[in-house]
């Protein structure tokens, strides 16, 4: 038993030193260097971190809980932001038609938007990387079948696929269930329309890696193909995948907003940024512009920041541009 514990400790210590090593190498590496040299990237990173952090800690950050019916008063509806006449110090950015603070709904909205974004990117990544790896490493018939499916997939625009899946889920599943599973429907819909990009990129890289001698060395040793794919090929094809994932996160947030705007995404009871924009849109001409403008601006800033980060990551990881 003692021996086992000793070994366990050894493994843990090993992991800790490896981690410390990794952290040290990161801060001495080229990536960190190019990061500190670009103010735009640093600002983007700060914005992204603020968004993600406030989304995660929404209950702590937001002044009110917009879902808590007890704290909502209809009398507070359509109050403008505080710097405009009629503003209320309780509501920094004003309130919507139901008397919910815009700032609070935005923070909770960002939580949903980013949640859907991260989940669908993760789903697309796992699916795409897995299929791309199989396709590129095994080649032949497997490759041909996966790539033809990808070709067909590419002929449908993302929105169309999302609408299709949403529609399907509404007809097939009982109506009251939709209130609970909308999240999964959205993730499935957005994820399915993104996987091809990962699959193609990973397939290309995997084909290159497969012909390299370290993979052949593993084959000569007698490592089974699945393990070679996971242990040797996968870590060496992940660089471009991370770049795509970052840029995709921005697109996924927008797609979700679009779907919600079209009314097939997040239900109005738990609004995302997109839902907020749609709801606020109705009040735009009645003079309550803040209901839609602030969520819109927040969405634009978030997407821009994430996109800039993705662009920088792509350039920083590209050895040809270094």
């Amino acid at each position: 038993m003692a021996v086992g514990e000793n070994q366990q400790a050894g493994v843990r210590r090993g992991f800790a030193t490896h981690l410390a090593d990794g952290v040290r190498r990161f801060f001495h590496g080229d990536l960190w260097h190019s990061f500190t040299r670009s103010p735009v990237v640093m600002v983007s990173a700060v914005i992204t971190v603020v968004f993600v952090a406030s989304a995660i800690f929404a209950p702590l950050v937001a002044p009110y809980d917009p879902f808590d019916l007890a704290s909502i008063d209809l009398l507070d509806s359509e109050i403008p932001p505080i710097w405009i006449e009629g503003g209320d110090p309780r509501f920094l950015l004003g309130t919507d038609d139901q008397g919910r603070g815009i700032l609070s709904t935005m923070i909770y909205g960002a939580r949903i938007s980013l949640g859907v974004g991260f989940a669908s990117v993760l789903f697309a990544m796992v699916l795409g990387v897995g299929l791309g790896l199989l396709s590129g490493y095994l080649g032949g018939t497997v490759d041909a079948i996966i790539m033809r499916i990808a070709d067909v997939q590419l002929t449908f625009p993302a929105i169309l696929i999302a609408l299709l899946i949403d529609g399907l889920s509404r007809t097939v599943l009982p109506r009251d269930l939709h209130g609970e599973i909308w999240f999964y429907v959205l993730v499935l819909a957005i994820g399915l329309s993104f996987w091809v990009q990962y699959a193609r990129t990973v397939r290309g890289s995997a084909m290159v890696e497969r012909s390299k001698e370290y993979v052949q060395a593993a084959q000569v040793i007698g490592i089974p193909p699945l393990l070679i794919m996971l242990r040797h090929v996968l870590p060496n094809v992940m660089g471009p995948v991370l770049v795509i994932a970052t840029i995709n996160l921005a697109i996924a947030v927008i797609t979700e907003a679009t779907l919600s705007f079209l009314g097939v995404g997040v239900p109005p009871t738990s609004p995302s940024l997109g839902t907020l924009i749609r709801v606020g849109n109705d009040f735009l001409f009645s003079g309550s512009w803040w209901i839609t403008i602030f969520p819109g601006a927040a969405l634009a800033i978030l997407v821009l920041a994430v996109n800039l980060l993705g662009d920088w990551l792509r350039d920083a990881l590209n050895p040809k541009l270094r």
């Binding site: 390299k212 001698e213 370290y214 052949q216 060395a217 593993a218 040793i221």
Partner: peptide
């Protein structure tokens, strides 16, 4: 019982593995 040494020393080692893991791979595999 049979192994191979390759031509390109820059391509024949997995760049993301520690040397000790690279050398231990056949030992662990078998």
């Amino acid at each position: 019982r049979l192994q191979m040494i390759f031509q390109d020393p820059y391509a024949s080692l997995n760049p993301r593995w520690r040397v000790s893991d690279i050398i231990a791979e056949p030992i662990r595999a078998h």
